[in-house]
C-alpha cells in the first residue's frame, strides 16, 4: 500500500535518511524501530512531505506522493499522528476533532465523534475541555482521534508510547488492535520493543538513517545480535 524507495532526506545539513526503502502491505501493522536520532520521525515526516526528501520515490496506493503538498497527501487517506502530540491546546476536544474532519472516503471507515468517544471513553467526558486541560495520556488519545476524523485508510503513528505511562500504553495497544481489525494499515515508529511486539506484524529497524533489518518479529527474535545492537537492553 505504501512503498518507500531509496529516499534520502536532510535536516539542515545533516544527512538523516540514506537510501531508505521499505513497503507496508495493506492491512498490516509495521513497526519502525530504532533509537532516537536514527531517523524514525524524519521517515514519517518525509512520507507526509513535511520534510522534503532530496531523492527517492514514495508511492501510496500506487500514486507518487513526493513533492505533493502535505494537505493533499492527507486527503489521499494517509493520516499522520505526530510524535509530540501537537494537539491544539487552545481548542476544545470537539474543536480539535473538527480540524481533523474530512469527508467520507471509499474503502475506509467513516468515523463520527460518537464512534471515537466510544473508542476513547476518557475523551467523551472531556469533550468541552480545552486541549491544555487534558492529561498527557488524554492528549495522546486526542491526537489519534483527531487523525481518525479524516477517515484515513492508512495511519502513521509516530512514537505513541513516548513519555506515556505503562497503563496508557496498554490502552493504546488495544486501540491499535481495533484499528487493524477495522482494516486500517498502520506504520508505527517505536523505541519500546515490548510495545512493538504486542501490536506489529513485522518490523523495520533503522540506524543513522540506514535500514538494518526488515522482517517479522519471529525472525528478529531469532537474530539476537541485531536486536541487541539496536534495541534490546
Amino acid at each position: 500500500m505504501l512503498k518507500v524507495n531509496a529516499i534520502n532526506s536532510f535536516y539542515g545539513k545533516a544527512h538523516v535518511l540514506r537510501n531508505l526503502s521499505f513497503n507496508v502491505p495493506k492491512g498490516h501493522v509495521v513497526a519502525l524501530l530504532g533509537r532516537n536520532g536514527a531517523g524514525k520521525s524524519t521517515t514519517m515526516k518525509s512520507i507526509m512531505q513535511l520534510v522534503r526528501p532530496s531523492s527517492g520515490e514514495i508511492t501510496f496506493k500506487d500514486e507518487d506522493i513526493v513533492r505533493l503538498p502535505s494537505h493533499q497527501i492527507a486527503r489521499l487517506g494517509l493520516g499522520y499522528v505526530p510524535e509530540d502530540r501537537r494537539i491544539f491546546t487552545d481548542l476544545t476536544v470537539i474543536e480539535n476533532l473538527l480540524v481533523g474532519w474530512q469527508s467520507p472516503r471509499e474503502g475506509a471507515v467513516t468515523w463520527t465523534q460518537e464512534m471515537l468517544f466510544d473508542l476513547f471513553p476518557n475523551l467523551a467526558e472531556r469533550r468541552n475541555n480545552r486541549g491544555k486541560a487534558l492529561s498527557g495520556g488524554e492528549q495522546q488519545m486526542l491526537t489519534i482521534a483527531r487523525t481518525l476524523m479524516g477517515n484515513p485508510s492508512f495511519v502513521l503513528l509516530d512514537e505513541p508510547s513516548e513519555g506515556v505511562a505503562p497503563v496508557i500504553i496498554e490502552q493504546m495497544i488495544k486501540v491499535i488492535g481495533q484499528l487493524k481489525s477495522e482494516g486500517l494499515t498502520v506504520l508505527l515508529s517505536e523505541q519500546n520493543l515490548h510495545f512493538a511486539q504486542a501490536v506489529a506484524d513485522s518490523t523495520v529497524i533503522i540506524e543513522s538513517g540506514v535500514k538494518m533489518f526488515d522482517g517479522t518479529l519471529e525472525t528478529l527474535n531469532s537474530k539476537p545480535e541485531i536486536r541487541d545492537a539496536y534495541l534490546a537492553a
Binding site: 523505541q191 534495541l231 534490546a232
Partner: peptide
Amino acid sequence: TAGMAPKERV
C-alpha cells in the same frame, strides 16, 4: 533516558 535506545539508556 527519554528518546534513547535501550543500549544508550543502560
